[in-house]
């Protein structure tokens, strides 16, 4: 009895996380779909490490899935990081650029 209740409450809390301000149902559906999509996306990306070694990919897969579920919902953070704020875009551009240069220069 209590366990179902807590589960229900947990689920409700989780859903409430999506809604800020006036909650429109169609926004909520978008957020939930986006959350699941993002989860699947990073799971698939973690599978990519099979190119280096298969056990590594399995460990990463488990860890990343666990982390993503633990920190859920992450879609709000994803949205925040993809805001059109100039400094944020500049920050991400510098990071990407540094990664590209680091990979190509010292990876090869």
């Amino acid at each position: 009895m209590t366990s179902t209740e807590t589960f229900y409450e947990k689920l409700k809390k989780w859903l409430d996380n999506f809604i800020t301000g006036s909650g429109y149902t169609n926004i909520t559906t978008g957020y939930i779909t986006g959350e699941l999509q993002f989860l699947v996306f990073i799971i698939i990306l973690s599978v990519f490490f099979r190119l280096f070694s298969v056990p590594l990919a399995i460990i990463l897969l488990i860890f990343i899935t666990a982390f993503a579920l633990y920190f859920a919902p992450v879609i709000k953070d994803v949205e925040k990081e993809n805001m059109n704020d100039l400094n944020r875009v500049l920050y991400w551009m510098v990071i990407y650029f540094a990664i590209i240069i680091a990979i190509t220069l010292w990876g090869g």
Binding site: V94, F97, A98, I99, I101, A102
Partner: peptide, 11 residues
């Protein structure tokens, strides 16, 4: 960001 900029500069 600073570390990233240093990498870019070195490159």
């Amino acid at each position: 960001a600073l570390i990233a900029l240093i990498i870019i500069t070195i490159g």
